[in-house]
């Protein structure tokens, strides 16, 4: 299947969702991304990525309770699926494997 591979930004978003455990929603993800990576994350871009991740089956989403903020609109909370976890682990493995093969002096 196309797209089990993670893009760089997709990986960042997926990791961010994982850090939130259960209350990850678009605006919070945006803010967290900006804080942790230091680069500005546009809402439109994040939405597109979330949509793609859901299509790939790496995250699942559910609407929360209605609140008085946000003009009475409900939030959509994202959680990482098992497939998502596997994809993250696989990406980490690939990186760790490559890191371990770099001779010590090369990046000193």
């Amino acid at each position: 299947m196309k797209g089990t591979n993670l893009g760089e930004f997709e990986e960042l978003v997926l990791l961010t969702i994982a850090t939130f455990v259960s209350d990850a929603y678009s605006v919070a993800i945006c803010d967290e991304l900006e804080k942790s990576s230091g680069r500005s994350a546009k809402l439109g871009v994040v939405h597109a990525v979330l949509n793609r991740l859901e299509e790939k089956g790496l995250v699942k989403s559910a609407l929360g309770e209605a609140t008085s903020t946000r003009g009475g609109k409900r939030k959509r909370f994202y959680t990482v699926t098992n497939g998502g976890k596997a994809a993250l682990l696989k990406a980490k493995e690939v990186r760790d494997g490559l890191w371990s093969r770099i001779p010590a002096f090369a990046l000193k």
């Binding site: 678009s26 609407l63 609109k73």
Partner: peptide, 12 residues
């Protein structure tokens, strides 16, 4: 998708 988008835009 509408409700979520509207909410996000309202929050911003």
């Amino acid at each position: 998708l509408l409700e979520d988008l509207q909410g996000d835009l309202n929050e911003f």
